[in-house]
């Protein structure tokens, strides 16, 4: 399958205005997504006043490294859930496809793939081979839906990550940088 990544290495980095509602606390600021060689990513979240909230690295092998997280948020369950969610949105690494299906309408392909101990369903727009929606199933905290909103560009205008069973929602909105 030729799935085109949303956060490709043709850009030095991607900058999003972001909000994270995690377990009754609200964090907002900027998310920086930096593509690294070999399909790895570095993701840094800083608050409005410029302070770094977390700094995570995602490897194409599926492994994850926490470089930094403020003490107030640094709890194993929160970090595990956040990192799995962001990894799902990055959708990097080799995909082990279990099943291919047609999505709703005639313009979408669907893929069922392994995701750790669970599975994920990826709905792809046939026009550009980019994911429109990724749904993960695999346990209460792991169940998550990533939705990409795009009006024709090569990066998403916004990304929404939501959970059904836990109070964690993440939203990114693209910022146009002036170079």
């Amino acid at each position: 399958m030729n799935l085109v990544p949303w956060f490709g290495s043709e850009r030095d980095h991607y900058l999003y205005n972001s909000g994270i509602d995690a377990f009754r606390e609200h964090y907002s600021g900027l998310i920086v997504i930096k593509p690294l060689p070999d399909g790895d990513y570095r993701v840094v979240f800083i608050n409005e006043l410029g302070i770094k909230i977390f700094d995570m690295e995602f490897f194409s092998t599926g492994e994850f490294l926490l470089h930094h997280c403020i003490a107030f948020l640094n709890r194993k369950f929160i970090i595990n859930t956040l990192s799995k969610d962001i990894s799902l949105a990055l959708n990097n690494g080799q995909m082990k496809v279990i099943k291919v299906f047609r999505g709703p309408g005639n313009d979408k392909s669907g893929f069922k793939a392994r995701d750790g101990n669970g599975v994920k369903y990826i709905l792809v727009n046939d026009a550009d081979n980019r994911a429109e929606k990724i749904i993960r199933r695999g346990g209460l905290a792991k169940n998550a839906v990533v939705t990409f909103f795009n009006s024709g560009g090569t990066e998403p205008d916004s990304v929404n990550i939501s959970h059904r069973h836990i109070k964690l929602d993440i939203h990114f909105s693209r910022i146009d940088e002036k170079h």
Binding site: D12, H13, L15, L30, V32, K34, R42, V44, I46, G50, K52, D55
Partner: peptide, 13 residues
């Protein structure tokens, strides 16, 4: 003017 320097980025925000 707020300048944010991250080691992971070549450029400042």
């Amino acid at each position: 003017t707020q300048e944010k320097s991250l080691s992971v980025l070549n450029e400042k925000i």
